[in-house]
């Protein structure tokens, strides 16, 4: 009986304020950030959202919800009502949850509001490393098997994907993979000499490279990067990388699937305008991210392509818990 009354009362409260796009937002919106305070995702979301608030004419209350490589936050938003009042502010990781055994849900349960930007990966080395470019590193690994220490951030993290890519192109590499809990700590360890090489996001390492505190080996892209014009693209060492690149992490805002189309449209428009503000563009530029600012079908296609490429790369490297096939993720190009 009690449960019925509670149910009835809450049902009343809901129906009284049911989301109609005309007056959306009629209450404050929750923004759940998948990663901790101070991380890249956090900075990007806290920088873009105030502009979006202005356009929406509402309040977005942002909270960090960490844990389970972001799965805790994703499941939380997936468990809320699809009314556009809970946003998921996340990065690329959820697209490989299923194959890594980290969760049963991914972005296919969500609608992209805006994919804001993507990053480029770069291989950096400790200044005292006995090689100065990518070719030199490969030679060193060959001459000293099992001695080069490469930083990683756990299975499915950016370094593991890059390493998988390297093994797919160059064949097996006999190196030691030392795990860190994020690229920040790993890059610190790189500068202190605890690891020799680290595949990292360009933005996280760019300032240290410019200052000469670590040396860049190659940009993991098909062409040189505008921020570091002296660093060769990895494809200039081995054409084989063209199959997998361009590839990189990304940031996006999502709502649960089933959210009314007009609400999604309103949110998308708000974030699109927000991401077009000059100061946000400058921020992205300074951190070495490439602005994307896409939504709708374009964003969906981007997600599908990203998921297919990465999933099969990890599968072929033997890093996955279950095959992408089980979840209907097709091989790229099929």
């Amino acid at each position: 009986m009690k449960r019925f009354i509670i149910g009835a009362v809450s049902a009343l409260a809901v129906s009284a304020t049911a989301a109609f796009a005309a007056d959306y937002p009629s209450k404050e919106i929750q923004g759940i950030i998948q990663w901790g305070a101070g991380g890249s995702t956090d900075t990007v979301m806290r920088a873009v959202t105030p502009h979006a608030e202005d356009v929406l004419g509402g309040t977005v209350v942002m909270q960090n919800m960490t844990g389970g490589v972001g799965a805790i936050a994703l499941n939380k938003v997936a468990g809320m009502k699809a009314d556009g009042y809970t946003l998921l502010m996340g990065a690329e990781n959820p697209l490989i949850y299923k194959i890594m055994g980290l969760g049963k849900k991914d972005y296919s349960d969500f609608v992209p509001v805006d994919i804001l930007a993507r990053g480029t990966a770069i291989l950096v080395a400790n200044n005292n490393a006995p090689f100065d470019d990518y070719a030199g590193m490969l030679q060193y690994i060959k001459d000293h098997p099992g001695e080069l220490r490469i930083g990683s951030t756990g299975p499915g993290g950016l370094p593991s994907v890059v390493t998988a890519m390297m093994e797919a192109v160059e064949g097996d590499l006999d190196v030691i993979s030392v795990p860190y809990d994020g690229d920040g700590p790993a890059l610190t360890a790189l500068q202190g000499g605890a690891i020799d090489v680290m595949p990292a996001v360009l933005g996280a390492s760019i300032e240290a490279i410019k200052a000469g505190n670590m040396k860049p080996l190659a940009v993991m892209d098909t062409e040189k990067n505008e921020f570091l014009p002296d660093v060769p693209a990895i494809t200039s060492f081995n054409e084989g990388y063209n199959t997998y690149l361009p590839w990189g992490p990304f940031f996006g805002v999502f709502v649960k699937k089933g959210t009314p189309d007009d609400v999604v449209a309103k949110l998308s428009a708000a974030y699109k305008e927000a991401a077009n503000q000059d100061d946000f563009k400058t921020l992205m530029h300074n951190r070495g991210f490439t602005l994307m600012n896409i939504s709708g079908q374009e964003a969906e296609d981007f997600l599908t392509k990203w998921q297919q490429g990465t999933s099969w790369l990890l599968q072929d490297a033997g890093l996955t818990k279950s095959s992408p096939e089980e979840f209907g993720i097709k091989r790229p190009g099929e």
Partner: peptide, 20 residues
């Protein structure tokens, strides 16, 4: 953790916290 967020704040305000 606090200085980590401050680094983010400096970025948002157009500075490039780093060795330079």
């Amino acid at each position: 953790a606090v200085t980590a967020i401050m680094i983010g704040a400096l970025f948002i305000h157009g500075l490039n916290p780093g060795p330079m």
